[in-house]
């Protein structure tokens, strides 16, 4: 059988919020290592990849590797039934038709049990090559969310330019141009407010703000976001989640042809 108990159940709710608008259905692959998921959006422009390590659960039991084919909208609806301080357990048989979600209140006075039908999903697994990135930008996740929100008011795309002076996000639309520049080590928040840039080569690339905005749904999961950028390559946007794993998104660039 498979059983994974997450004491901080709110994390599962947050992971769900971070993927449900991007991916309609996906396999949750459960192995001894933990729970992982890789899925593209329907237009194959972006990809989400997440890992919840087994040691983040207490207990975690996986007798046999299984894939839980899940409709994200259905699972998101069930996760909304869990309270933020609930302990969440995911459970299934070795050859499952269903998955069970159990929500326990902290004092165990209330136990909710939701059983959901699984789907047979033929998912396409993409091999992501190890890339040497031109620039790796770390910044407060809330700041990245703010930049995507603000520039969405100006245009559909954001041009990310990174050089020795820092990183600039710019958008252009019918009404004009917006530019947001961040300098390295600028303190934006009181805590975790550092902007750091690891620069190998100056780089400039354009991405659709619609998808980056989907990615920022992961903001409640982490204080810091890392953008890894390489010329004419997809950007990797990573949120590392304390004690359990990560959620990583990839987005193909817009390129002049």
């Amino acid at each position: 059988m498979f059983e994974a108990r997450l004491v901080q159940g709110s994390l599962m709710k947050k992971f769900m919020e971070a993927i449900k608008d991007l991916v309609k259905e996906a396999n949750w692959d459960c192995t001894g290592t933990g729970i992982s998921l890789q899925a593209m959006d329907t237009s194959h422009v972006s990809l989400v990849s997440l890992l919840l390590r087994s040691d983040g659960f207490d207990p975690y039991r996986c007798d046999r590797n299984i894939s839980l084919g899940i409709n994200m909208e259905s699972m998101a609806k069930i996760m909304k039934c869990a309270s933020n301080d609930d302990v969440i357990t995911i459970r299934s048989e070795d050859h499952p038709d269903n998955v069970t979600f159990v929500f326990e209140s902290p004092n165990q006075e209330k136990v909710c049990d939701y059983e959901m039908k699984l789907m047979d999903i033929d998912s396409e697994h993409l091999g992501i090559p190890d890339t040497e990135y031109d620039a790796i930008i770390s910044m407060p996740a809330s700041e990245f969310q703010r930049i995507c929100r603000d520039l969405s008011n100006i245009g559909d795309s954001v041009k990310i330019t990174c050089n020795k002076d820092g990183v600039q996000f710019s958008a252009q639309g019918d009404t004009g141009i917006g530019k947001i520049a961040l300098k390295q080590n600028a303190v934006i928040d009181k805590e975790d407010g550092q902007v750091s840039i690891e620069l190998n080569d100056p780089v400039s690339l354009t991405f659709a703000l619609r998808y980056l905005t989907f990615f920022t749904k992961a903001t409640p999961l982490a204080s810091t976001v890392t953008l890894s950028v390489s010329a004419k390559n997809p950007v990797a946007v990573e949120y590392r989640v304390d004690d359990i794993g990560y959620i990583r998104y990839y987005l193909a660039p817009k390129i002049e042809e």
Binding site: H44, H125, I128, Y250, A252
Partner: peptide
């Protein structure tokens, strides 16, 4: 103009 690329242009199907 700019063309939106597909991820499949970059990542291989495993």
């Amino acid at each position: 103009g700019l063309t939106q690329k597909s991820l499949k242009d970059f990542f291989s199907t495993a």
